[in-house]
Design a protein around this nucleic acid. Structure first.
Length: 467
RNA sequence: GACCCCAUCGUCUAGUGGUUAGGACACCGGCCUUUCACGCCGGCAACACGGGUUCGAAUCCCGUUGGGGUCGCCA
């Protein structure tokens, strides 16, 4: 049977890390098996669901490179179908009207809590005749869940999980206003969409037992379930905004590459022997549910950053320049960036990208190449350019002016011979030179910088710094 | 509180009855070197605890502890 999966976020905020990983696992699993991956927006909570959130989720998935098949299903548009199923369940005796008021239920829960009893609907309308209904109370429809025996879920990640039916309660399927609840909607949609594998967060494991009885009541076949462990914060507690439960867009803004994020998320809760660096093609080839671990994993920004450094080094130079362009523009503003600047940056990328771990770092380390003179000096660089160093640079300048064949090799030869003539170690000359040319004490190889900058710009910066 | 899930280096993980318990990130040394990175070499570091089962347990069973999740007319 062909695999059909779905990612079903509720649009009440951005696409956070946990959701992104759930989407990724679904997508990888589906692509691995050559199935269909669908996107369903669970916007039945009309108050909390927003259009910007829907867009943020779609943007997040697109950035991640997770694409879906078929049109997006909006759960809110299927309310009538959901209500119809509730009525069918009612007609078949698998559901019943409950006339308990919200106040009554709150009181019931409070009493249960006080007495230390399980907090759960007590089934007070389960066997009562609707003719006993109090006047003026619109009823909800509740599932008539079994009270004896046990419910067993064969979870593809968690294994066999069983719970005694006495622990199940009669959940609300249709609200008093006639709108369906999430518990009903998911089941109906998963069935109608032909979902074969429900891969979602562990927080839904308990729901699976209850949802199973909706499937059963309708005579529908149960999908396979795979409940993946949640992602925790660095301290082991639930991942919160404080930790990094940010939207994936925040990571994009911090300068992370989507392929790095994909690799990181993949390895968080899934493993394949000793393989660490796994690109998307390889991930699709390898990914399956049996490799998913059962324990929660902590989010580790440092490891993400390391992976990002790896993928930056692998990234194509032109693409990197495109990605840092907006950052760069902001850094050199109001000075505009030219086409020539772009070419220069592309050529400079190999030396730059091995030294940066994020695009933001890359942008700031690249800026000196395209900044207008006079170059701003950072504190260490300024300090380095003492009178002695300036004199050295003044003496060096004439040795460079005569070079017609301005190459890295030639520049290196001239600087080295100059240092030798001065009786100085190369570093004594190279560091002031670096400060003058880059405004910093760290940079790519200084001869590479000279070659890329060109003779006139190099000389001009030298003069600026020696003044 | 009830129910469910989980437990190997600091972190992510490999390991499915017999291994010097492996890899990666981080950290600490060293090499390379004009700086910083990259790269390479080396080091530190774990089976939560207690009982079983077994000739033998990180691996199987039970319990304890710890962590997490769920108990809405939210999703």
């Amino acid at each position: 049977m062909a695999v059909v999966t779905r990612f079903a976020p509720s649009p009440t905020g951005f696409l956070h890390i946990g959701g992104a990983r759930t989407a990724l696992f679904n997508w990888l699993f589906t692509r691995h098996h050559g199935g269909v991956f669908r996107l369903r927006i669970e916007d039945t909570d009309r108050v909390r669901s927003t259009q910007p959130a829907i867009e943020a989720i779609i943007d997040g998935l697109s950035w991640l490179g997770v694409d879906w098949d078929d049109e997006i299903v909006y759960q809110s548009q299927r309310a009538e179908r959901h209500a119809e199923v509730a009525r069918q369940l009612l007609a078949a005796g698998h559901a019943y009207h409950c006339f308990a008021t919200q106040e009554e239920l709150a009181e019931m829960r409070e009493a249960a809590r006080r007495e230390g009893r399980p907090i759960r609907y007590d089934g007070r309308w389960r066997d009562r005749d609707p003719s006993e209904a109090p006047p003026g109370v619109p009823p909800v429809i509740r599932l008539r869940a079994p009270q004896e025996g046990e419910t067993v879920i064969q979870d593809l990640v968690q294994g066999e999980v069983r719970v005694g039916n006495e622990h199940l309660d009669d959940m609300v399927l249709l609200r008093a206003d006639g709108t369906p609840t999430y518990m009903l909607s998911v089941v109906v949609d998963d069935h109608d969409m032909g979902i074969t594998h429900v891969i979602r967060g562990d927080d839904h494991l308990n729901n699976a037992f209850r949802q199973a009885h909706v499937f059963l009541g309708m005579g529908w076949e149960l999908p396979a379930f795979a409940h993946i462990p949640l992602i925790h914060g660095p301290d082991g507690s639930k991942l919160s905004k404080r930790h990094g439960a940010l939207g994936v867009d925040a990571y994009r803004d911090m300068g992370y590459l989507p392929e790095a994020m994909r690799n990181y998320l993949l390895r968080l809760g899934w493993g394949h022997g000793d393989e660490e660096i796994i690109d998307t093609e390889r991930a699709i080839e390898l990914f399956d549910l049996d490799g998913v671990g059962r324990s929660p994993a902590r989010f580790d920004m440092v490891k993400l950053t390391n992976l990002n450094g790896h993928y930056m080094r692998e990234a194509e130079d032109g693409r990197l320049v495109d990605l840092i362009w907006p950052h760069l523009q902001a850094l050199v503003a109001p000075h505009p960036l030219s086409e020539a600047a772009r070419d220069l940056l592309v050529r400079a990328m190999p030396g730059l990208k091995v030294r940066a771990k994020t695009l933001v770092e890359l942008a700031s380390s690249a800026a000196f190449y395209v900044r207008p003179r006079p170059l701003p000096m950072d504190e260490k660089a300024a300090k380095l350019l003492d009178p002695e160093a300036k004199q050295l640079l003044r003496d060096l300048a004439p040795r460079l002016e005569g070079i017609d064949d301005w190459t890295e090799t030639e520049a290196e030869a001239r600087v080295r011979s100059f240092a030798e003539d001065q009786g100085k170690k190369l570093g004594k000359v190279a560091q002031p030179l670096r400060a003058a040319l880059t405004g910093s004490t760290t940079s790519p190889g200084i001869f590479e910088v000279m070659a890329l900058l060109g003779r006139e710009e190099t000389l001009a910066r030298l003069r600026d710094a020696a003044a």
